[in-house]
Amino acid sequence: MTMSENARKLRGGSLSENVRTIGYALLIALVIRAFLFQPFFIPSSSMESTLLIGDYLFVSKYSYGYSRHSLPFSPPLFSGRLAGVEPERGDIAVFKQPIDNRTDFIKRVIGLPGDTVQMRGGVLYINDREVPRVRVEDFIERDVMGNVRRVPRYRETLPNGVSYFTLDRMRDSAGDNTGVYHVPEGHYFMMGDNRDNSSDSRVAESVGYVPFENLIGRAEIIFFSVDGSAALWQIWKWPSAIRWDRLGKWVE
């Protein structure tokens, strides 16, 4: 064997090894994404003040078991859930929008199967019982121009003791007074914490009741967050655009 033939053989072996290594890495990443943790980006304000636009968080895929929506592109390999575990009231869950089974939504689990849910004068009622809420300090919003807006904020406590903040931007908005929702078996009633700026189960033509199968996972921890004040090319602004106080914050 000549030296040139030997060199070609070594290069071919090295290329094959690199391809194999990349393949293994992609397979491991796919397994982690499908069965353990998946990153998600928050693009809207519907979960303020709990989650902010620009938050990046990890969602645990194993929390509720697995459905076809646990896999990329939701292939119809099976129906229902494997190793299914029902969510708890108050969980913040990522799910596929029931209307198209493609779009990812993130909301809080408010109503369980068999519950009745209603909003009266901005107050939440579950099974015809008022969910206590207490006025707390305002949520402070700052836009990119530095303008400040104060939004009324409340601490709401569900029947199982889970407590969190909600915002009330407008009095007597369309979502503040609703009919009675009867949550069907195998479905959940989801709501955003930013009550007047959330397309959720109160809007049947947008979300409605969410099937158990559509749940993807539970929000766990914020691993990165930016406030949107720096464009991708403005490298010198990146440090000031990062919300350092939100990094590593558990989602509640």
Rank of each mutant, 00 (worst) to 15 (best):
N101G: 03
A231E: 07
F139K: 15
Q234K: 08
Y181K: 11
S173E: 09
V180Y: 02
T157E: 14
I92R: 13
R20N: 00
R153T: 15
S67M: 05
R243E: 14
S74H: 09
P75F: 04
L77M: 06
V210W: 04
E5T: 06
H182A: 15
P132V: 14
D128C: 03
F165H: 15
R149T: 15
G228R: 06
N214E: 07
D196A: 03
V162R: 15
P132Q: 08
Y164D: 13
S79Y: 04
D196S: 05
I22R: 00
N160I: 12
V203R: 06
Y24V: 11
D245G: 10
H187F: 08
N160K: 10
G84A: 14
G161M: 05
W250K: 14
S70R: 03
A204P: 00
M170G: 00
R155H: 11
A25M: 11
W233V: 04
S163H: 08
V251Y: 08
N127I: 12
M119E: 12
D245Q: 15
K237I: 02
A29M: 08
S173H: 10
H187G: 03
A231V: 02
V151A: 10
L124P: 14
E252L: 13
E5S: 08
H187C: 12
Y24A: 08
I216S: 02
F105G: 02
P211H: 04
G12S: 04
I140F: 13
R108I: 15
R149A: 09
S45F: 01
M47R: 12
R171K: 08
R243C: 10
Q97P: 00
Y164L: 14
F41V: 08
S14W: 12
F40K: 06
K107V: 14
V207T: 09
P152F: 11
G228S: 06
S44Q: 02
S173K: 01
G65R: 12
P43G: 02
L215K: 05
K61I: 04
D168A: 13
G122K: 10
R169H: 03
I235D: 00
L15T: 09
W250N: 07
D196F: 04
E17P: 00
N214W: 04
I216H: 02
L124K: 14
D100I: 01
G84Q: 12
F95V: 10
S44G: 00
S240K: 14
D176E: 09
Y209S: 07
L52Q: 13
I92N: 06
Y125M: 07
I92M: 11
A29G: 04
S79T: 07
Y24S: 03
D168H: 13
I106A: 11
N197G: 01
F41E: 06
S16G: 09
L158R: 14
R142F: 12
G161W: 05
V94I: 15
S206V: 04
F139I: 13
D143G: 06
A93V: 15
M119G: 05
D172A: 05
R81E: 05
V207D: 02
Y56A: 03
N197Y: 04
D115E: 07
